[in-house]
Amino acid sequence: MKCGSNLEKVILSGQPAVTAELGPPMSADPHEVIKKAQILKGFCDAANITDCQTAVVRISSIAAAVLALREGLEPVMQMTCRDRNRIAMQADLLGAAALGLKNCLCLAGDHQKFSAAGRLKGHPGAKNVYDVDTCQLVGILKKMRDEGLQEGGDKLEVAPKYFIGASWTPMGDPLDFRPMNLMKKVNSGADFIQTQGIYDIELFRSQMEKIRNMGLHERTAILGGIIVPKSAMMLKYMDSSVAGVSVPKALIDRMAKAKAAAGEDKKKAKELQEQEGLKITVELIHQVLETPGVKGVHIQAIEWETAIEGIVKAAGLYPRPTFPVE
């Protein structure tokens, strides 16, 4: 056991792991985090707390993670390389561990120009940091945990014990480099991997075959990413505009059909598409979990946390495993 987090225990138990996502608000009000944590608690093994996702200022990942932890939801603190240098990162890692956080997902982070895909003002003129990249951040966590050393070599009296994660975009450009990309993250010390959203299951499976041939699935726990689709428009947008996501036409057509069935009734169209989206989600979860080498799913119901309970139950992934308190 590397850190004894609930997520690590579920993965070690051999049961499929389920993680979800909790996006902190653009507000100093803790109640939204608390509310979302209460909604997700019991239906996932841990929930990712995003770190100013889409390059927009929100409650920090660490603070929101502590709020979630107090509600009894195990957090996966996310840490991007965009906003901190290695001094700030390690200080935050020590502080977060002191506050009881045990999982950390390392990410490059959306570029500051992203500004919620242009929907918000954001801070496109901000200076980014990128002192280290994802592989290097993973390596820093590992060195702190396993050697009790800071990146610079100074000793840590008490080492932070993290279950170390990294993201992976299996279907991103350049496609034939992506397996090597994962290998570098695993070689750096990633204990678990959460992937970008998967819709094109055939392509994902062909990438996973390469991963199995490299033996990487035995050295890290790969959780397949599931992004819950809400509408035909959302699927089309993700297919055309979200990097590393391709959506098969059959899925877009299914959603379009659900929308068309409502005729002119907009409320009904929303309902029918959401119902179809939940069905598609459950099917994708099964297809991803049936793929050899996959150890779980990372379900993102963006601004739709209430959907998680039904999805997890319908997918036969409820109740979640529990472990005796040490």
């Binding site: 390389c81 965009r82 490059a108 982070g109 959306d110 570029h111 120009k113 992203f114 980014n128 990128y130 990249d133 994802t134 592989c135 290097q136 993201s167 992976w168 975009t169 991103g172 450009d173 350049p174 480099f177 090597m180 990309n181 570098k184 970008q196 505009s241 979200v242 990097a243 590393g244």
Partner: peptide, 29 residues
């Protein structure tokens, strides 16, 4: 690379272009 990444591309590459702009080549591509 818009993020000065040293170990490969981030998840933001699409059609060989950078997430910052589709007029910017992804250096890692």
């Amino acid at each position: 690379c818009s993020k000065s990444l040293m170990n490969g591309p981030c998840g933001g590459t699409k059609n060989g272009k950078c997430e910052v702009s589709d007029e910017v080549d992804c250096a890692w591509f």
